[in-house]
């Protein structure tokens, strides 16, 4: 990794941002998805429409929100709608091009676990839960998942399905008539995985310059298949890095600022 002047996190965020296009209507989760979506908006996709489940539509935050409902998201939105409305009129109605999610764990068919590791009624690790993700994963026309890769996060078997990907694969999702097409890309800190059009199993199609295909396979809890030719993803450009670092610097300063209560 010597000579690299960016971090694996930055590479992952930049790669996720590049998958988004201008004017896409994007339903964004907090954390890495939010960073990537805002990087896209501040670089190649200025007119991307960002929607957060707190009801903020067309928001253009200058700093990344810590929570899904920071004031910055409301103050810079085209409009703010109630929660029952965001999930029914905007998501369930099929108006979302891309659902952008994270998770604690993922399996080879892009199913997500953000609920529990171990048994539900006797958890080894209780995670926060599904939130808005189950319906985002169902109704967005397609879903991108940003998640760091390790044998603990890319698992052969999920203890709990919080949000559906392709379920058991081989066309089960479309047979069960899910409205959206499901997960179409996983962006990890090793590269990009895409689903096989027949089996629905995710395969490594691209890797970063600083990792090997073998290391990506080793960091996966199922026997990861690769496409015949694994592309090498171009490193972040100077502009991408600058935009991302400025965004993070503004965010850090904003989140550390003291709040003044009017009492």
């Amino acid at each position: 990794m010597s000579g690299m002047d960016w971090t694996p996190d930055e590479m992952m965020t930049v790669t996720a941002a590049r998958l988004l296009w201008d004017k896409a209507v994007c339903f964004v989760g907090i954390g890495l998805p939010s960073a990537a979506a805002n990087l896209a908006r501040q670089s190649h996709a200025p007119d991307i429409v960002l929607i957060y489940e707190s009801g903020t539509i067309g928001t253009r935050p200058n700093v990344l929100p810590l929570s899904i409902g920071d004031g910055e998201l409301a103050d810079t939105a085209v409009c703010v709608v109630p929660l029952p409305e965001i999930f029914s009129y905007w998501l369930q109605s099929g108006r979302i091009d891309v659902g952008f999610l994270g998770a604690a764990q993922i399996d080879r068919y892009g199913n997500l676990n953000s609920t529990v590791v171990g048994r539900y009624d006797a958890p080894k690790t209780r995670l926060p839960g599904a939130g808005g993700a189950p319906e985002i994963a169902t109704h967005a026309k397609q879903v991108f998942v940003v998640i760091k890769q390790s044998p603990r996060s890319f698992v052969a078997h999920l203890d709990f399905i919080s949000s559906a990907g392709f379920l058991a694969g081989d066309g089960e999702r479309s047979r069960r008539r899910a409205p959206g097409r499901g997960p179409q890309a996983i962006i990890s800190d090793y590269g990009v995985l895409k689903p096989d059009p027949v089996t629905d199993e995710f395969v490594l199609v691209a890797r970063y310059e600083h990792v090997t295909t073998e290391s990506a396979i080793a960091a996966c809890g199922w026997p990861l298949k690769t496409s015949e030719f694994v592309e090498v993803i171009a490193p972040p450009t100077a502009q991408e890095l600058l935009a991302l670092r400025e965004l993070h610097a503004r965010t850090k300063a904003a989140h550390a600022a003291a709040v003044k209560l009017p009492i």
Partner: peptide
């Protein structure tokens, strides 16, 4: 959200295309 909407409407249940494929 659907449960609150039903509650405010004094309907017995809320309806949605939800929880698809989840546990």
């Amino acid at each position: 959200a659907a449960a609150y909407v039903a509650g405010a409407s004094r309907l017995p249940f809320g309806v949605l295309r939800g929880y698809f494929g989840t546990d």
